[in-house]
Each structure stands twice: as C-alpha cells, then as structure tokens.
Amino acid sequence: MAVSSDIGAGLRPRRYGAVNWVGVWNLYVKEVKRFLKVITQTVAAPVVTTLLFLAIFTLALGRAVEFVAGVPFTEFLAPGLITMAMAQNAFANTSSSIVVGKIQGNIIDVLMPPISPGEFVAAYVLAAITRGVLVGAVTWLAMMAFVDLPAAAPAFLVFHAVGASMMMGLLGIMAAIWADKFDHIAAITNFVITPFAFLSGTFYSISRLPEPFYTIAYYNPFFYMIDGFRYGAIGQSDASPLLGLAVMIGVNLALWIAAYRMVASGYKMKA
C-alpha cells in the first residue's frame, strides 16, 4: 500500500490551459533542428541554386530584356527568385518531415503526445516559416552584392515573406498527409509546385501573358505571393498591393482550416 502510493509521488500530470505551449514549442524546436542539422542541403544549397538562376537568367535575358515594367530586369527578377526559394523550402520542410515520419513510423511520436491538431499544424507551419524566411534572408543578403534591393515597403516585405512560407508550409502538410511515399511528394514538387513557382510572374510581368492566361493569373495565389513580395522589395507590382494582402490572408485562412481539419480527422495518419 505504502509502497505503491510512494512511487511517483512527486510526479503529477502537467496542467495546462487551452494551449499546450510547452508541447508546441518543443515540436517547433524539433522541426527547426531537423533542418538545421543538414543546413548545407536545406539552406546553403537553395541559396546557391537561386544565385545560379539569377546568373543564368540575367545572362540569358539581360541584354534582350533590359527593363520589365520600367524596372531593370535583374532588379525585377531578384525578388521573384527569392520568393520562389522561400516557397519551395517552406513546402519541402513540412512535406519531407511528415512523409519521412509516416514512412519510418516515427510520426507516432508526434501524434501520441497531448498535442492538439491545431498545435500540430501551428508547430510545423512555424518551422516552415522559419526555414522559408531564413532561406529568403540569406538569399537576399547574397543578392545585395549584385542587385539593388531597396526594401521599398518593409511591412509588405515581411508580411509576404511570412505569408508565402505559411501558405507553402500548410500545403506541404496537406500534401504529405495525403502522400503514401516519397514519389508522391516528388511528383507534387516537380509537376505542381515548381511549375507554379516558375510561371506565376517570377521572370516576367504578367501583362506579357496572352489573354486567357492573363485573366487566369489573377486567380493564382502564387502570383500574389510573388507580386506582393516584389512590391515590398522594390515598390513595383502588377496587382494592387492591398489586393495582394487580402488574397494572401484569405488563402492562408482557408489553408489553415483545411489543414486543421485534415489533421483532426486523422486522415491517413490515425486511421
């Protein structure tokens, strides 16, 4: 009797209010450490690849296309490439982590603890934002050596950096929950994410597009993400900056709800 009541006498269930802050924080830290451990692949490589793109497209187009919408071509291109790098890395961060977890089975370590679906989504998305913004910031600094990047509207710049990474992090969560193996994520990255990132105004003003595509571009959230970040960086945009803000807020809200419901339902993770 006495013995059984002595064991673990000092241990009590931890009490917390509406949000398990300790849990969210630890999951976030785990996710950040996951990509920092292979920082060469997760930060340095995308930075170098993005600089390579800047060199390639400046060499290829710089002389034929001197100005886009009144802005020197390289200056127009740089913010688009930075957004592309942030978006792809935010997507890669959540999607690869969750798919690896599912395949290796260690996703259970995240599903079993008292972490609610909302906390799950928040921690993964915050880590994706951290990686996206880190990649974006390092690329920005590196590009400053070659390109004039005035940060014309800093508030828009920060908003769109965070908004773009958040959107792609949420999409990454949903894609990874749906995917059964690496091939699926590779296919989504290759055949959906990369084409969208390339064709949504990174390299040209959408006013160049012929008619059906010009109108379609206005329904493409990737376009607002690139356009808005470019407005923040150089003060030039195709669409109204306020419309860009509204679209990013709306899309992110919708994706939060969708990702939350997907995690809460246990779809392909708890079934």
Binding site: F57, A60, L61, R63, A64, V65, V68, D183, A186, A187, N190, F191, T194, P195, F198, L199, T202, F203, Y204, R208, L209
Partner: peptide, 28 residues
C-alpha cells in the same frame, strides 16, 4: 526515378517557356 525521369525535361520546358514569355517581341 519513375516519373522524375521527366523532371529534367520539365525543367527545360519551364526554362524555355519563361524565356519565351519574357522575351516577347524582343527579337534576339
């Protein structure tokens, strides 16, 4: 690689498309 065998072709297609759009009428 499975489908990713077509990855490089897709990348080249994207490169060519964006250059084609960006060049527009500029004849080079």
């Amino acid at each position: 690689f499975r489908l990713a065998i077509f990855g490089p072709a897709l990348q080249a297609l994207l490169f060519a498309s964006v250059i084609w759009i960006a060049l527009g009428e500029a004849v080079t």
